[in-house]
Design a protein around this nucleic acid. Structure first.
Lengths: 179, 179
DNA sequence: GCTTTGACCGTCCACATTGGACGGTCTTGA
DNA sequence: TCAAGACCGTCCAATGTGGACGGTCAAAGC
């Protein structure tokens, strides 16, 4: 028996396999699903999704179904796919990636035209507060529903926590920097 | 007079120009500088830095100095570079990018082997708490120094705020998800 | 009935970003 | 004197982003 190749899938592929556990989805659906559930904390772009789906199909981790309306092609997870997902999960989540131009602005504040940083921070405060309101509204709505996966609520709560922390951070900035 | 090309630099190039406002630096120095000042919130990798430096040199935004020890080549910002930086800053910070495998884990918790998510969260709690302690220690140290740029403290405070929020978030997770 | 709008669905490409392998130079201390 | 390790840069494969492009279908308005 030949040694079975374990393709060592990447996190993007793994996330797709994760979503496919609930049933076949098209690439388009997967993007939408990710957007709805983890939104800002795990971006999936079309290009990436279709590329990984094609690759995974080659490796037998997913199988394309029949083409439906508008060329839509649903992919279903296979047993090999489930195994690959479990293997990925067992390796644990790796380091994340964060790139916040806002923080870059703050750090380089010394070299910005006077007042610019102040303006930017004020705008950000508004944005973050609006985001927080959105999250809170969503939370309210989901609370009134039954059978909502607590994992989704936990993710949403992370968004709430961080948005709130960000607003507070801006509010407590010393006068030389912020207000 | 020919229309002067405004190269429309990207955020990575802009951050390099920002750091160069304080004087010439080598690519290596720039990576270290970014690591020290914005650390986790604005990653700069060697490949990216050397590539952008070469490009910016072509466009006259920076000028290489004389090669020193170990092939080190310091770059100095030019007037055109300062102008390009100011133009970038005037456009404001764009959207950030965040990709947190931990949140992916939480979101997909339903499909993980029982107990795995719990383990992962416990590990993360330890990590984040350690990170928080590091930040707090740094903050302490900087507070005892004179003439520390308040912008750097503000960035550090963001780290503290978020780390603290993350720890609290883990602590308040419902039993089905976390503890 | 006809058309227009816009949601749906995928392909493709240029560019940005990451991580690490590789090769070399100089300093320090065992 | 030599080994380890910090310093410095090049290069490449893999990954990720954003948007242009082209097509299909359903619904709403005329």
């Amino acid at each position: 028996m030949t040694a079975q190749q374990k393709p060592e899938i990447n996190a993007t592929a793994a996330s797709l396999l994760g979503f496919l556990h609930d049933g076949p989805l098209t690439g388009w659906d997967l993007v939408a699903q990710a957007e709805r559930t983890i939104g800002p904390f795990w971006s999936l772009t079309k290009s990436q999704v279709y590329r990984e789906l094609a690759l995974m199909a080659e490796h037998g981790l997913v199988t394309p179904g029949e083409t439906g309306r508008r060329d839509s092609r649903p992919y279903a997870i296979t047993d090999a796919g489930r195994a690959a997902f479990a293997a990925w999960a067992a390796r644990g989540p790796g380091e994340g990636t964060i790139r916040l131009p806002l923080l870059l602005f703050v750090t380089l504040g010394r070299h910005l035209e006077p007042g610019l940083l102040r303006t930017v921070l004020a705008e950000q405060r508004i944005q973050q507060a609006a985001l927080l309101r959105d999250y809170l509204g969503m939370r309210q709505m989901l609370d009134e529903l039954d059978g909502v996966d607590p994992h989704l609520l936990a993710t949403l709560d992370y968004g709430i926590t961080v948005a709130r922390a960000t607003v507070r951070w801006i509010d407590h900035l010393p006068p030389e920097v912020g207000a």
